[in-house]
């Protein structure tokens, strides 16, 4: 006997939608939303993940501890200094490289690919390789910059002033190609007629760059700045791979300090959760500033 269509078990459109969305929602809630809110709760508690003692509510004490500790401010200052210098250099070098290789020439494809290689490597591997390259005895860096005598060669990773620069150089080497890639995308999207019109008006190179090239590429450059700033503010793996935060804590970024608080013998889960939220708030605030600027550029 054939059942009538009305009696057939059928999924309604709403149920089909739910069926597709629910697994994603469940994963999202379990893997992202719940940990996010649970860590927010933990940031207001005195709690260690390795202790069998339940979290104890302490209000804003963890935040107060962090914001009133001069050492934490030192880590923020190191991170800020690192972010400003790396992002500025990456913009200059990345955009400069893009201007150089935007015109097609023999071998430009291979050269572009080779330039992109550093950003495809694992940061930990890059860190370990550069540590060898910075080595005062057999590293190539000192040799290339002319220090052939081991007795007078700078000890990049042992000097509090040079160590941060050592990491900055690696970060710039690794991520300038990313800026170059975005800049190339922006440069190739500039209509030729703008340059033709400027040429007819006998506009100079600097005028063309300032009034046509730069404004046209600016939205993509701002996106590059946004991405690189976020990454630089979270810098962890290169620091651990190259200096381990040393000498002393001269290169200890906020993320490295966060790692030390959260793990490495301390396991202060409450305090480290609070620090993670402070970093998150800083990143959101800076991102918002960039996005506003980006919208202004787009509108203007």
């Amino acid at each position: 006997m054939i059942k009538s269509p009305s009696k057939r078990r059928q999924l309604s459109d709403r149920n089909i939608i739910l069926l597709f969305i629910l697994p994603t929602m469940i994963i999202l809630v379990l893997m992202n939303i719940y940990p996010l809110f649970y860590s927010l709760y933990l940031s207001f508690t005195d709690y260690s993940v390795i202790s069998s003692v339940a979290p104890k509510w302490v209000g804003f004490q963890n935040y107060q501890t962090i914001l009133s500790d001069t050492r934490f401010w030192k880590h923020f200052a190191i991170t800020g200094q690192y972010t400003i210098i790396t992002v500025a250099l990456q913009m200059l070098i990345g955009f400069g490289l893009a201007l150089l290789i935007k015109e097609k020439f023999w071998g430009s494809g291979i050269i572009t690919t080779l330039i992109l290689v550093p950003m495809m490597l694992s940061p930990v591997v890059v860190g370990l390789f550069w540590r060898l390259m910075y080595h005062p005895s057999y590293g190539i860096v000192n040799y290339l910059i002319g220090f052939r005598n081991i007795n007078t060669a700078p000890e990049w990773l042992g000097s509090p002033t040079l160590a941060l620069w050592a990491i900055i150089i690696v970060d710039v080497w690794m991520w300038s190609p990313f800026v170059m890639l975005l800049s190339l995308a922006g440069l190739s999207a500039i209509p030729d007629y703008l340059y033709e019109a400027a040429a007819i008006d006998r506009a100079g190179s600097w005028f063309i760059f300032r009034r046509i090239t730069l404004p046209q590429v600016m939205p993509l450059l701002l996106i590059a700045v946004l991405f690189r700033t976020i990454e630089a503010l979270k810098q962890f793996d290169l620091v651990m791979g190259i200096t381990g935060g040393g000498p002393g804590d001269a290169t200890e970024t906020v993320s490295v300090r966060l790692y030390r608080e959260a793990f490495q013998g301390q396991f202060d889960t409450g305090l480290s959760s609070a620090l993670a939220y402070i970093v998150l708030i800083v990143i959101i605030a800076i991102s918002n500033l960039y996005i506003r600027q980006l919208n202004k550029v787009r509108e203007g």
């Binding site: 042992g158 000097s159 509090p160 040393g246 000498p247 002393g248 804590d249 001269a250």
Partner: peptide
């Protein structure tokens, strides 16, 4: 306790601070 020990020793011995 280990954290300040490591930091101060490394700053002075390696960093020369």
């Amino acid at each position: 306790l280990l954290e300040p020990s490591q930091r101060y020793l490394h700053s002075y011995v390696v960093g020369g601070e």
